[in-house]
């Protein structure tokens, strides 16, 4: 897709998704990280279901196009033809204004591949809670360094309002960069000393589900204290 068309499309979808979120008064939990986002998203959403219905972003729709579409209960067109996009845009418009509101709680995935991606996503959603999972090498072909990506996650942490919460995997080598940017309360979890929350079993956490469970518990406690929206 041409850059200029993508930008226009992104702006339009972003505006519509924001409008739907706004009229729904939805509290958003954003899940970011390089590894373990999807597991964390599902685990957190499952945990939060005790507070009521939870919207969960679908599949890996976590980009500036995919995220607003999933917030409008739509999926990116498979064939990407002009006709398909026309239909999608029409539906997006209808959904934004006329579909039932989203649930009061939403857990969405933020995908970041290069510099500047996070700012685009934050134009769509302002999360009250941000979860940052594992920051480690996942792709040797990426042109973006882990330091660059850590700065992106720091931007997310900085966007969370003071009354919100940042939940950070403190075992990351880049946790400090993220931690220093947050103005909201920050809770670190992980096996290493210095983290506020540790796994029950004294072991090195290796699986995404272990870490996701810890993060989910922290967020659940936070929502519980804060009160259901």
């Amino acid at each position: 897709m041409r850059y200029s068309i993508k930008k226009v499309l992104s702006w339009f979808l972003c505006a519509l998704a924001r409008y739907r979120l706004g009229r729904s008064h939805t509290v958003v939990v954003a899940v970011a990280g390089i590894v373990g986002k999807s597991t964390a998203k599902r685990t957190v959403a499952k945990k939060l279901k005790k507070f009521g219905e939870v919207f969960v972003s679908k599949k890996n729709y976590n980009t500036e196009i995919g995220l607003p579409l999933t917030l409008l209960d739509l999926e990116p067109p498979y064939s990407q033809t002009v006709g398909e996009w026309g239909t999608i845009l029409y539906r997006a418009f209808v959904r934004a204004f006329f579909s039932p509101p989203l649930p009061r709680l939403a857990v969405v995935e933020f995908g970041v591949a290069e510099k500047g991606d996070m700012l685009q996503l934050l134009k769509i959603v302002t999360p009250i809670v941000a979860v940052i999972t594992n920051i480690s090498v996942s792709d040797f072909n990426s042109q973006t360094t882990l330091e660059d990506l850590s700065i992106e996650f720091a931007v997310l942490a900085a966007s969370v309002p003071k009354q919100g919460l940042v939940v950070l995997n403190g075992d990351n080598n880049y946790a400090k960069i993220v931690k220093s940017a947050a103005k909201a309360r920050i809770i670190t979890y992980g096996a290493k000393e210095g983290n506020e929350v540790h796994p029950v079993a004294p072991k090195v956490m290796s699986s995404a589900s272990d870490t996701a469970t810890l993060a989910a518990t922290i967020i659940s406690d936070f929502i519980s204290q804060r009160g259901t929206p």
Binding site: K59, N60, N134, D139, S207, A208
Partner: peptide
């Protein structure tokens, strides 16, 4: 690729099979 493994994890989860993309 972790992106692919997470998609696989998601598709398995939809049918009720819980497996960790990472491990």
């Amino acid at each position: 690729l972790i992106e692919l493994r997470e998609l696989i994890e998601g598709s398995l989860a939809e049918e009720g099979s819980q497996y960790d993309a990472q491990s």
